[in-house]
Design a protein around this nucleic acid. Structure first.
Lengths: 239, 239
DNA sequence: CGCTATGTTGACCCGCGTCAATGACCGTGG
DNA sequence: CCACGGTCATTGACGCGGGTCAACATAGCG
């Protein structure tokens, strides 16, 4: 069983220039015009923690660049990656008084922080602000439910195929047309998100490559050659 | 692979008297005082569908008595039970214009329906109504996330133990003190909720019985004899 | 009473986890 | 520029947890 050394708990405030930026800069993705106009800028380095399970929830954050993963960890070190957050995504708005999971930068990332009192004020003022936040929560809930179907009932190959397609659609909104996915996360991150092991993820990806369905020019770059076959695999048409 | 014959799609409006009522009558569980005062009463018989995936979302519902399961079904018949809903619970409030899963009565059930236009009106009027609905959505989201950890990373025994403890806590709020859980759902329902098979659920329950941790006086009744040992199993202390 | 739905139990097997060895890549310092 | 060490990915061998299949038990229910 793996255990994960907790990286330094305090966020690295020191600014860094991201060397390689696998994800494009933010577009105004989610409807969050209701947020307070200006928040404090935060820079995180590779694997830095933004907050940890149990921390007092002081702020919520919007990703500007890079990528963040949200993880839950069991007592014995088993890890589950609840979700990956990309530029434009809002994170931590669903916490009560305390965060119930840990957030870490997958790669160097820039965020904007919105103190919760400020957010609550904005919610109290604008009637449709609450509505938009509710809609966001409901979208997250729907996504969580289809992830439960994936974890509960899909084979390894179906999970991988579903993940790749979903990731492509997400990135397509930002940088449309690209058939090549620039992966920010490692095989282990993907495995912990899909309820698999990193070996299984690697095997499935290379099996897809051998079948000519995807290409792997670089470990972190996945090129989808035959989306329709991937779609068939995601629905369970065998091999 | 099992396939599930779709029961008659239209809800059985004909009233029935529930013969055995495994769940107690509703208490004012969730804070939903903001709901319109009176909604239409609905009675469902065993396995009747309340609504199906793809139906136009006209209403949301509150369970008065009985139990309802919410399921997602894959093209080839694989099934996942997203959640079970007990008296006091609100169902269908998270739908967009159309339901994205099917709701069926586990046992005979009574519900109250609230037409969505009526609900939207209540939301527009009261400022804290929206806040309470948001809180409800966020509680559901948190529950979904811990279910993902269960599905992605827990062994069969850990899933069963976690499920039993969670179910007991839920029922305890309504009928406190009881060490015996009156199960409304079958082994298949439980299996489809935990990402297992009905045989595995049966084996694990009987293994717990052999170890003296629970008793099974009747297939639908589970008596928790040693909650602390169950709690240990849920966290992963082996056997 | 028999019919049907549900639950139990055993035998077998396979998909994926586990363990281990090797390879590719990258930043760092000599 | 290259040697070195660390991280990540790949690949193979092997085993096990839980899925699959099948037989039988039990319990409501007409």
């Amino acid at each position: 069983m793996l255990s994960y050394a907790a990286s330094s708990p305090q966020p690295a405030i020191a600014s860094r220039l991201p060397a390689a930026m696998p994800f494009p800069a933010a577009l105004p993705e989610e409807q969050d015009s209701w947020l307070p106009p200006k928040g404090m800028r935060i820079s995180l380095g590779h694997n830095d923690a933004l907050f940890s399970e149990g921390d007092e929830a002081r702020s919520c954050y919007k990703i500007v660049s890079g990528a963040v993963r949200v993880v839950k960890i069991m007592a014995d070190g088993r890890r589950y990656v609840v979700d990956f957050f990309l530029p434009g995504d809002l994170i931590g708005f669903d916490a009560g008084s305390t965060y119930e999971f840990t957030a870490e930068a997958v790669v160097d990332a820039q965020l904007v922080s919105y103190p919760r009192p400020r957010v609550d004020m904005a919610l109290a003022e604008s009637p449709q602000a609450g509505r938009q936040l509710l809609d966001l929560a409901l979208r997250r809930l729907a996504a969580a439910q289809s992830q439960m179907l994936l974890l509960g009932r899909m084979s390894a190959m179906e999970r991988i195929a579903t993940f790749l397609l979903k990731l492509q659609r997400r990135l397509d909104g930002k940088r449309p047309g690209g058939r090549t996915i620039a992966l920010a996360m490692t095989r282990l991150d993907i495995a912990d998100h899909l309820g698999l092991t990193l070996e299984t993820v690697s095997r499935m990806l290379n099996q897809l490559k051998r079948q000519g369905i995807i290409d792997l020019p670089h470990p972190q770059h996945i090129c989808i050659l035959k989306p329709e076959r991937l779609r068939a695999l995601a629905v369970g048409v065998c091999d």
